[in-house]
């Protein structure tokens, strides 16, 4: 079961890379780098760095810190608010229009304000990622709480639970499958907003998105491809981590 599902999982990336290499070898891609050039690029990033001296680990570490900070902040804010909105029809009615009005704004549009409020640095780029992660987590939490079988809080009430207890020990665990789905979607969007977030400028000179922009400035499209691959791998690794946590937390399903 596990073996076969792993087998299936690697098929599509390998097929995509093979197709990519095939097209490149056939000379059909023009200026687009080949997978092999991208891999060489990764080695260049590890060894020399871009700009020279700024090596891959520094970029990956800085981006990871930004994504995790924005992501963690978004989860810490979105889950409690989402639980309250799912629990209270009144609060939902009051906040929903605001949420729906702000949600469609692309995180990048906040960039000038991000710089104005938080300067350029970790907080500013984390804020942009925060905006990307916040809404999927919030909306999934709200819908998760709303979809909890209404008899469960009632049962808890007849067993002597207070409203606060019901929030924490019935609605949150009941909504947890949906919350975790929101967190997974949010994590994906967090990585997606990273390049935009790092356009706010990075004081340290490190960051994968920033590195991709630098590679563009230097016309090193092979390194752009390397950066994309690294972001993809990191995103995949983090999603796998969340899935493992999910498997453990939701083993009751």
């Amino acid at each position: 079961m596990w073996v076969s599902s792993t087998k299936w999982k690697v098929i599509s990336p390998i097929a995509a890379i093979l197709l990519w290499q095939l097209l490149a070898s056939a000379g059909l891609l023009g200026k687009t780098p080949s997978p092999w050039q991208a891999v060489e690029g990764i080695w260049f990033l590890i060894d020399t760095g871009l700009p020279p001296g700024y090596r891959l680990w520094g970029h990956a570490g800085a981006s990871l810190a930004r994504v995790l900070a924005g992501f963690a902040a978004a989860c810490l804010v979105a889950v409690p608010i989402g639980v309250l909105m799912g629990w209270s029809k009144h609060l939902d009615a009051v906040l929903d229009p605001l949420v729906e009005a702000v949600r469609p704004v692309p995180p990048l549009a906040w960039l000038p304000f991000a710089v104005l409020w938080f300067g350029i640095g970790l907080v500013s780029s984390s804020f942009i990622i925060f905006l990307g992660v916040f809404f999927p987590v919030l909306l999934n939490t709200v819908s998760g709480v709303k979809s909890v079988d209404p008899r469960l809080p009632e049962a808890a009430r007849t067993l002597g639970a207070s409203e606060a207890t019901i929030l924490g020990r019935v609605l949150v665990p009941g909504a947890s499958p949906s919350i975790i789905t929101g967190i997974r979607i949010g994590m994906g969007i967090g990585w997606m907003t990273l390049v935009a977030a790092e356009m706010t400028g990075v004081k340290s000179g490190y960051g994968l998105g920033y590195m991709i922009l630098t590679a563009r400035d230097y016309a090193r499209y092979d390194l752009v491809a390397s950066g994309i691959i690294v972001i993809g791998l990191l995103g995949f690794a983090m999603d796998t981590c969340i899935r493992l946590v999910e498997k453990r937390l939701l083993r009751w399903r």
Binding site: D149, R151, E154, A155, V170, W252
Partner: peptide, 11 residues
């Protein structure tokens, strides 16, 4: 109160 559909906490 005992419910028809059990209303157990699945987690």
């Amino acid at each position: 109160l005992v419910f028809q559909e059990y209303a157990l906490f699945p987690w």
